[in-house]
Nucleic acid binder design. Structure first.
Lengths: 157, 157
DNA sequence: TATAATAAAGGTCAAAGATAGTCAATGAAA
DNA sequence: TTTCATTGACTATCTTTGACCTTTATTATA
């Protein structure tokens, strides 16, 4: 009801466009002009209201002919399961735990065996061999979270 | 949606020609005239959008009767493609190049689109955000090589 | 004919221009 | 007080442009 601040207005405006089109492409500067705010406020709105978790996919490009493209993505029905599994992931993640997680994902039919193996190859300590142990495990955790994010809207084939 | 600037237009135009012919031979000056841009912009487009990693082969000749020939390269079987692409991976690998590689793998039916996307999530700079730029790119190269190794193995099943 | 000049391509690179992103300080609201 | 919103200085990335360079073909000349 009390949508009175600029960010809410911008959010609403974009969502309205999305309603019509399903995909919106804006130019940051133009939008900022339109709403008479600084350009970075557009980033703020996007970062707080159009996240992957909220079901949006954002892509942008800088330079001449730059743009920000916002798209609504369908979240699949694995959300709860993914959240639950994601809670397992700490700041650090060992190869062993990665395997366990991927195994669960497979067991719950969220990914295929082959996908699990491909992911595992990228998460292996061999793949991350340049890093010291601590960084390796932190990075692995980071990677796994990215994967989960992706899985929230990838449909299993 | 796609044509945001001159370079994109030129890219699209060339790709359209390639669609029809499979091989295109242009004269840099003519193309520049046609699009009313400086000749070196043609080089820019070619260098950023028609690289080996993206599946193109470019050959040119200077002097009278000079030309730029652009060809879509089609590789034969998987073993070769994997090796060839792997050769292309340096000590360092950017996100962009990773995308190009995964795209090729998809194009040649070695991985599915979904697999490519899952891998990309693990290779993203967001996933590797804890690392400094150099380590990030070295690690990405390392990861990609692990993936290739796995793909060689998977292929046999 | 052999060689030297000239013309006709294309190549390189770095600067300038055009966008978007980040971050931290400040302000406002709950 | 704590969280959310606003701002703007600084940064990163992509595109456009132009001056200068290299290669190749053609023409003029000894």
């Amino acid at each position: 009801m009390t949508n009175h601040n600029m960010s809410d207005l911008i959010e609403e405006y974009i969502k309205q466009l999305l309603e019509e089109e399903g995909l919106v492409e804006i130019r940051r500067t133009d939008m900022a002009d339109q709403f008479q705010c600084v350009p970075s406020q557009i980033n703020y709105v996007i970062n707080t209201r159009f996240t992957v978790g909220q079901g949006y996919h954002v892509k942008s490009k800088r330079g001449g002919g730059g743009y920000i493209r916002i798209q609504k993505v369908e979240l699949n029905h694995h959300g709860d399961l993914l959240s639950e599994l994601e809670d397992w992931i700490d700041q650090k993640l060992s190869v062993k735990d990665s395997m366990a997680i991927l195994q669960q994902l497979y067991k719950y039919d969220i990914i295929t065996k082959r996908e699990a193996n491909l992911c595992l190859s990228l998460l292996s300590s061999d793949a991350l061999k340049l890093l010291d142990k601590t960084t390796e495990e932190k990075t692995r955790a980071c990677m796994m979270k990215r994967l989960f994010e992706r899985l929230r809207y990838e449909e299993k084939e």
